[in-house]
Design a protein around this nucleic acid. Sequence first.
DNA 1: ATGGCTGTTATCCG
DNA 2: CCGGATAACAGCCA
Length: 286
Amino acid sequence: MPELPEVEVLVRQLRPRLIGKQIQSIEVLRPRSIRPTDPDTLARTLRRATFVGLERRGKFLIFTLRRPGRRPSTFPLVGHLGMTGRMYVTPAKFPLPKHVPVRLGLRGEQFLFEDPRYFGRLTLDLGSLPEFGPEPLEAAFTAHHLKTALARCSQAIKVKLLDQTLVAGIGNIYASEALFRARISPRTPSRRVRPAALVRLRDSVVEVLEEAILFGSTLPLNFSGSGATDGLFYFGTTADSGSGYEERLRVYDRANQPCVRCGRTIRRIVQAARSTYYCPTCQPSG
DNA sequence: ATGGCTGTTATCCG
DNA sequence: CCGGATAACAGCCA
């Protein structure tokens, strides 16, 4: 569920369920998922620690824990969901799902990190945090920043949007969506994107992410189960309104369907081994 | 059922 | 350094 909006919604859901809770037990079922921390170190460090904070940085989750009587009293735990990671709190007796790299026992509850593809991570190692560009929903993310950062970059703008050092948190879906709204061809070399288009791009990125967070916030997400609303809200539909998320995505996964703006056919291309969707008419190359 | 697709990103090449 | 390809892994869909 990994782009910025999904992580933001998760963090908001998790915060009230974790803050103040003490970790009683630690089980690492999949050591690779906590690398480079080793299971013994994780267990020693987390036992009897209490969650005191949770923040999002790009697509990363930064948990803060406190251990009284030890120094430093407060320390971070870094999480990333990869492609299929989920995190949730359930009653302690909840049956353990199939792919759970880490289980943290709380009092009467458990915190589960489930991750079928094991691309995600939960680690004590801060070196796992990459260099980050500005947060797209904060003031530092401006058209001017894009202009400066892209001035000498020949890489296609779609590919560059996935670069977390340019701006933190955009993934494959919202990259296509933002470019569609800004009417910029995904193939445009970054340095060739006009200043006016960069202004539209900045605005489109903010809009797309904010709308997604807003939408995700309205969903009764069931993080402890499976199904359309289990936290993967890209394609889920709201039970009541009938306004599904699919309708909110204007180009992503819509190859060969009519463009919602002009009616011509949406195309799928592959850039840097990832699918890109766009409307050749609304997002012309020239 | 086999093969091709998938939300991420580290790492290894040229 | 830059950019492209691949690997890490499992599930789902046609």
